[in-house]
């Protein structure tokens, strides 16, 4: 469905020295700085997969999606979507794809939502009957009934996003790219949107590529994640595997009456790590879930100290990803130190 091979994108940015002098200089002698937004990534996505594409801000997510939609031409490497090279066959590719960009609207601002859909019907040349069925179904799943007659400018953010989503799926595209579809939405709308995406995936086998900063989206919608950072892929695999691979670490926070006196119980020595905790009454212990059982750690602590409260942190995808980002950064710094020495 989607194949990406050694895909690279570089931007040339004009580099300027500060101040007026710098501005004058740049008029005559332009210096360019090359920014490597995507540094040679590979992945393949099969028809019907739901993939979460995550990474910190500026990691290269949007750049990748733009290359998949054909809006951007890669600097080098190969992309095909459904057998087509997107930037060479932009209009043909457009028929197969749908997209939601959380920050932009694709509906017409001043006319009722229904009219926007009607226009999309003609633009994508959707047969009348198919269109009617689709609209009817979307109206039910997304509760659009009361919104169809209202101009887009009068909709709330949540209402608008529901309408945008319907617009992206209206022509039953084979692939849908969702760039932060839940940004700024309340829980109830998020739940509705996730349910809708899942249902479309199951019903039509729509391939979904989703970027988001909300890990709950990922856990509920995706069965695979690709993590990108600094333009390279850190991880590509199943959601369960990443939890197994990186998620054995457990952290328990204990509330102690007297933190000053705390010393690690000898039975836990060597297996448990004390994490820095800024709160005055709390300490945090981190350990490998496979090697030590949580119950053992807790009972050891209880036998030695007066515990006011305790809290076991879940192996959330969020913490795993955060861990991965941090490791990457440390690794980079480490490399720099090596390079300098």
């Amino acid at each position: 469905m989607i194949t990406v091979e050694n895909l690279k994108k570089e931007y040339k940015l004009v580099k300027r020295d500060p101040g007026l002098k710098g501005a004058m200089k740049s008029l005559f002698n332009r210096k360019y700085e090359t920014k490597h937004a995507v540094k040679g990534i590979d992945f393949t996505i099969e028809q019907g997969e739901t993939v979460g594409y995550i990474g910190s801000n500026g990691a290269g997510k949007s750049t990748t999606i733009k290359m998949l939609t054909g809006i951007l031409t890669p600097t080098s490497g190969k992309v095909t979507v459904n057998g087509l090279v997107p930037y060479e066959n932009r209009q043909k590719n457009a028929v197969n794809i749908g997209a939601v960009f959380g920050q932009r609207t694709q509906l017409f601002w001043d006319i009722p939502v229904r009219e926007s859909y009607n226009l999309l019907k003609h633009i994508y040349e959707i047969p009348e009957q198919e269109y009617q069925e689709t609209i009817e179904m979307f109206t039910e799943v997304l509760n659009l009934e009361s919104l169809l007659g209202i101009p887009v400018r009068q909709l709330s953010l949540g209402q608008k996003m529901r309408c945008e989503l319907a617009a992206a799926f209206l022509h039953r595209p084979k692939v849908v790219y969702l760039d932060e579809p839940t940004i700024g939405l309340d829980i109830a709308v998020k739940v509705k949107i996730r349910k809708f995406i899942k249902e479309m995936n199951q019903r039509w086998g729509t391939t979904v590529l989703l970027t988001t900063h909300d890990m709950q989206d990922i856990e509920e919608i995706c069965d695979r994640i690709i993590i990108i950072d600094g333009g390279t892929i850190l991880y590509d695999g199943g959601l369960d595997e990443i939890k197994k691979q990186f998620g054995q670490k457990r952290v328990i926070h204990f509330e102690l009456a007297d933190k000053e006196k705390f010393e690690l119980p000898s039975a836990l020595n060597g297996q448990v790590e004390v994490l820095p905790n800024e709160e005055e009454t709390k300490i945090s212990l981190s350990f490998d879930h496979e090697a030590v059982k949580s119950s053992f750690v807790i009972s050891e602590m209880m036998s030695m100290y007066e515990i006011g409260d305790l809290n076991i942190a879940d192996p959330k995808i969020e913490t795993i990803v955060e861990d991965l980002y941090n490791k990457q950064e440390q690794g980079e710094e480490h490399e720099k130190v090596l390079a300098n020495s």
Partner: peptide, 13 residues
Amino acid sequence: DGQVAIELMRPYD
């Protein structure tokens, strides 16, 4: 404002 990106994703000239 970058809206042209959306336009380029549509199946029309």
